[in-house]
Nucleic acid binder design. Structure first.
Lengths: 344, 344
DNA sequence: TTGTAAGCGTTATCAA
DNA sequence: TTGATAACGCTTACAA
């Protein structure tokens, strides 16, 4: 089975006694070929079960019609949604996707990127891993003439196309909402500060406090609480303070917020009356917890489509003077649910 | 940026005044090349920022070290987990993944498969779409000398490698569990019967009833209830029967089970005392609903790894006589939670 | 409209 | 151990 030889354009050419170039032209639907022979060629190709060898075609044309995607984990809701969005838009344009996961490890991320460069992908789409420090490998992508698009978690010092969420604004709105509901001591569960997105979310939190003239209390800010377990741990610490918070903004994720909710429930603290909770990401489960969790929707599938379309636009304009915006910011949406409805 | 010419082995050869073939050999770490020159070549390659053109290499070698994956939706938990598993195992072997989604449409599935054939992938891994009827396109994969592995949703009449769940056994256990908890009228929410997995789950349900000498009541079997909405709709119908069921096995998915739970809650029916609910898939949310939902874990990441490793084993044995099992069945695990704990 | 031939960047074969 | 050369299957000037 493995060694079956495939039909090539030469086989078709030989059978019809014409030149391979004509076959190629016909199969590419060129208009420089007689309609009748074109039909004949297409028919024969089908009969012989011909399949174009994209490898050869791409090699010759110097492009692969392939987009490489690198994400920390394929099976995390946000990323799988973004990928689905990229796939949808790419498929329409006849592009393929090669997907890699970095497992949040810079070392693996580098290998993934190199593989994609070797594969001659036309574009690399990446959301950088949590432990990434330097970005030589990304610079390398550019040096190899490959378009680079960063999304969500971006290295801001690198001048590439970017599609991001307005994390700061979203966080500002979330915390403002908490304030307006009457919460007075609002805690923050923050993520690794080497990632821009988490710095931005913290900035939004601080801005909101400032806006309402509320003090920043360091004891209410918990570092590195971006899993359910770490969220729960941070919450236990917070709720055992002499003056515990009356609201927690789990800026890292809904998983973290879930950790908060579970600890609060276990401690007999009522949500939202005694403790308000706001998460981030609009994971499916936030709708069905008791109470349901207020969170922020990032329009992840749309984000994926935006990434892909940004690439296609950039391609179309590549030799024109038209200026394409380098950074697209998507405004996330605050979704208010029961976990923060204190004020009614 | 786009037109930057990449370094080729000829550039390296020219610079060092040696033949390209030697460069190729050195870069492939062949032992037929002088250690000293090998080192020199590798060093020069790094200096010139050489990246192998995998396209050319694959074309020449007649293999792509790429596995194509076709799933209904990338962003469904089960599939994204399987993909993550495939990725992990493939990465270790130096294989790449090209991912497509069929959107449950046979028409798109066919296009995806053809694209993958054109891409000369070495192996196609597929879980067929819900509306798939015939399988010519899959036969075509085999005819093109490409290894085909089906997983989860398989076309049984096609003799390929398969990795499946023992759906029948799992369903049997689930329904048996319901019976043993004291439920007397157990309803079934079934999925599209053109998919083998749903036929198997139904068979497991019927077997369980038979095992306990319970009658099969057609009014308790609801067709095509495989989304949350359809599950909810089916549940309303069931609970409004003159003799409503006291347990519902949502064999299609946890989403369906969630629909059941929401309707029951809305109607003031107590779970599990008045109604037992069992889902399928062990989605993350089943753990955090009130009450938590009994379900069946399919070991999806493990399934993905199994798929990839099956391919690699098959490759290694391809010219040996060793017989590799053609079908690997993974035994799912019943996870008992609050929604069915009637008997205590 | 069709054919000829070169070339994409590798690797494999053969010879030196 | 190294070099020259053909070939993988396709596309594209250029010529006919």
């Amino acid at each position: 089975m493995k060694n079956k030889k495939r039909t090539t354009i030469y086989d078709i050419a030989k059978k019809l006694n014409i030149a391979a170039s004509s076959v190629s032209r016909a199969l590419n639907n060129s208009d420089q070929v007689n309609e009748a022979t074109k039909k004949l060629i297409v028919k024969t190709a089908a009969e012989l079960n011909y399949k174009r060898n994209t490898l050869a075609s791409n090699l010759r044309k110097g492009q692969s019609k392939t987009i490489g995607v690198v994400v920390p984990f394929i099976n995390q809701n946000f990323f799988s949604n973004v990928i689905a969005g990229i796939e949808e838009a790419s498929y329409q344009k006849g592009y393929n996707l090669i997907i890699c996961q970095s497992n949040e490890l810079q070392s693996k991320e580098i290998k993934c990127v190199n593989t994609l460069i070797n594969q001659h992908v036309d574009c690399i789409v990446i959301s950088i891993s949590a432990d990434s420090s330097d970005h030589k490998h990304l610079q390398n992508v550019l040096d190899n003439g490959i378009q680079l698009i960063q999304f969500d978690r971006v290295a801001d010092e690198l001048e590439t196309l970017k599609v991001i969420n307005d994390n700061e604004q979203a966080s500002l709105e979330a915390v403002s909402h908490l304030v307006e509901q009457g919460y007075k001591r609002i805690a923050l569960l923050e993520g690794p500060q080497n990632l821009q997105i988490f710095r931005q979310r913290k900035a939004g939190y601080l801005n909101a406090l400032k806006k309402y003239g509320m003090p920043v209390l360091n004891e209410l800010i918990v570092e590195n609480a971006w899993t359910k377990e770490l969220g729960a741990k941070g919450t236990r610490k917070l709720l055992n303070l002499a003056q515990p918070p009356d609201a927690i903004f789990a800026s890292t994720s809904d998983f973290s917020a879930l950790g908060v909710l579970e600890v609060a429930t276990a401690m007999g603290i009522k949500v939202p009356s005694e403790l308000g909770i706001c998460g981030y990401s609009n994971e499916a489960f936030t709708e069905i917890t008791s109470p349901s969790i207020t969170t922020i929707d990032q329009f992840s599938v749309y984000m994926g489509k935006t990434v892909a379309n940004l690439y296609f636009q950039e391609m179309e304009n590549k030799e024109e003077t038209a200026v394409v915006p380098k950074i697209i910011s998507i405004k996330p949406k605050l979704i208010v649910r029961s976990s923060t409805k204190k004020g009614g």
